[in-house]
Computed example of a mutant assay.
Amino acid sequence: MSRINELIAELCPEGVEFKEVGELLDYEQPGKYLVESIAYDNNHATPVLTAGKTFILGYTDETDGIYPASTNEPVIIFDDFTTAFKWVDFPFKAKSSAMKMLTPKPDAIESLRYAYYAMQTITYAPQDHARQWIGTYSKFCIPVPPLEVQREIVKVLDTFTKLEAELEAELEARLRQYKYYRDALLAFEDQNVRWVTMSEVGKFFRGRRFTKDDYVSDGIECIHYGDIYTQYDTATMSTVSQVRSDMASSLRFAKPGDLVIAGVGETVEDVGKAVAWLGDGNVAIHDDCFAFRHSLNPKFVSYYFQTAAFHAEKNKFVARAKVKRLSGDSIGKLAIPFPPLDEQERIVTILDKFDALVNDISNGLPAEIKARRQQYAHYRDRLLSFREAA
């Protein structure tokens, strides 16, 4: 930090020039880099990317139309609808035509990495589903200090980024360990445990339709199928969304203890994901969800739905159209273990402790990663706060 302050005092004591992002960066459309098949396989060589949270959607064996990013010629991938962006320094293919590849314009800015960090300070959330780069985002301004200052800022922020990446790698290793133990615990190998089809121990019913236009800030709690694989984990006592109270008579509700299952998804993996509803009252469910009403421990069933064995069996029943679907009849044919209730509760207690270690942001590694991210954001914003030159 002191070195950066010295450079600023020496090279730009009167402030720095602010320039529009579009003056500094060129964009390229992804057309020739789009993946043709979504038959991804982790054994394939080339990652398929999105600029969103998922980042790597899978791996393809396609060999044509690969974007040649590298450590020497990196690129920023930018989602033209959400304005999310990622740093990429390896070859890849793109999934969405809404992605743009951003590179530095000749003689405009030398450090793309600096521009990447400076873009993180832009606070903007699109309010409509429209293209953002050309008309809006490229017009935002960022400070452009002398190159020596840019390099020092990048050096500091890269150090924070590396430390966070190391913590995330350790957390990922623990997640793999946890998943292995969970799957082994719920396999009941060499144990005299009864296995039953889900239709033998419960019943299914489908929700009723509502749309995002029906959402309100204070209304009836609801679960949309998309939220099951983006917002919830094993169980929840509250919802992220609510719909209008005057819709009550047209809705269908899950009760506390029911398992709410996503019946559709963009990928085979997403279909069949589930969350146990543990709220105090009933919850409205979307018509692309199923509720499973049963007498088992709800978290026990939800944990089993996360196992590799369950997904391997479930995948046989998924209808593989553009949108992947799973029917209630098909789910009812799936087998689940049915140990005594006290054994179900014992397993849930064990898995809850493991789950907290890798997912609870108030403890352990997740808490440390959260603190590191807050520290990074603090220093990033300080380092990138410049006085604009007159």
Rank of each mutant, 00 (worst) to 15 (best):
E20I: 03
V283E: 06
S238A: 14
D227N: 15
A335M: 15
Q177N: 04
V301L: 12
I369P: 04
R174E: 07
E388N: 00
K105N: 05
Q344C: 03
A377K: 09
A235P: 05
Y229D: 02
R380H: 07
N363K: 12
A173Y: 02
Q242H: 15
Q127V: 03
H129F: 13
G15Q: 05
V156W: 06
V348N: 02
M247E: 02
G15W: 12
V264A: 11
D190M: 01
A98E: 14
L171N: 03
Q177R: 03
T54P: 03
K314A: 05
S249F: 06
S249G: 09
Y27A: 02
R380Y: 05
E343I: 07
T63V: 09
E14P: 11
Y180N: 06
R373N: 01
E189G: 01
I76Y: 09
T60R: 09
R320H: 10
T121I: 02
I4T: 08
Q120Y: 07
L357E: 08
N315C: 13
R151Y: 06
H286G: 15
Y67I: 07
R373K: 14
F140E: 02
V268T: 09
P298I: 06
E345F: 13
F188L: 04
G15F: 10
G332C: 08
G226V: 02
F85Y: 15
Y376P: 04
S302Q: 00
L112C: 10
I134W: 00
T161D: 11
T236W: 00
R387N: 13
F204P: 00
N297W: 09
